[in-house]
Nucleic acid binder design. Structure first.
Lengths: 113, 113
DNA sequence: TTTATTAATCGTAATATTGCAATATAATAT
DNA sequence: ATATTATATTGCAATATTACGATTAATAAA
């Protein structure tokens, strides 16, 4: 074990979890926040900004890119990263809908908590 | 290694990442979705509903409870779980703000992607 | 008091993640 | 061609996560 049983869950459950999982590391949140602030940057900027080794930042960038949160464009010898606009909006909606599903129970109804 | 360097990140970055991490497993999304649908349920219901072993569900429930997404009330021999209203709203706002930070770059401005 | 019922905890195996040094790759500059 | 710059990949050690069988604890029912 140590292996998630994805086959017993719905596609939506797996998708929400996959995105949340990528957001579940402070380095990746820091990368996204830096990108949100400066719009575009290269890997080296993030190494200076965040203070993790270059291979570690590169690895986090790959995960963010794989899930579609960011994109990277080769520019000479460096790679310019930025937020993926369309996916960002889609993920925002996905999480918004998830959190909005909550319907507070009225005091009249049964509630154990 | 294998250990996240939380000390080099801001409290907000660590908080967002911690919550996202807990949301980063389909079983925990499934548990929350079931709770959102039926308002309250006990551990055994989730075992039947989801199809993981009882200790596994119990473990996922503990993580959801630790981060504050749900609460559990002892009722006789069973424990009644429900969404934690206040934290749910707070986390919704936290993630909403995070996703809303994105300001699309106009075509005029520099953008590499 | 014994026996269910329900959930938590313990222990453990399999797998995943984090972080980095060393190395490889790829484009540019000299 | 060679050196430089920037990033990706590989390999590995330390740690974390996932899942579950076995056990425990705590209440309820007989």
């Amino acid at each position: 074990m140590g292996l998630t049983k994805t086959e017993i869950f719905t596609a939506e459950q797996n998708e929400v979890a996959s995105i949340a999982k990528v957001l579940g590391h402070p380095a990746r949140i820091a990368i996204l926040q830096h990108l949100l602030k400066v719009n575009t940057c290269i890997c080296g900027d993030l190494v200076d900004e965040i203070g993790l080794a270059q291979p570690t930042i590169s690895q986090h960038l790959r995960e963010l890119k794989n899930i579609g949160l960011i994109r990277g464009n080769i520019e000479g010898t460096s790679v310019c990263y930025c937020i993926d606009h369309d996916n960002w909006q889609a993920f925002k909606t996905l999480f918004g809908n998830f959190f909005d599903t909550y319907k507070p129970v009225s005091c009249e109804e049964e509630d154990c908590c």
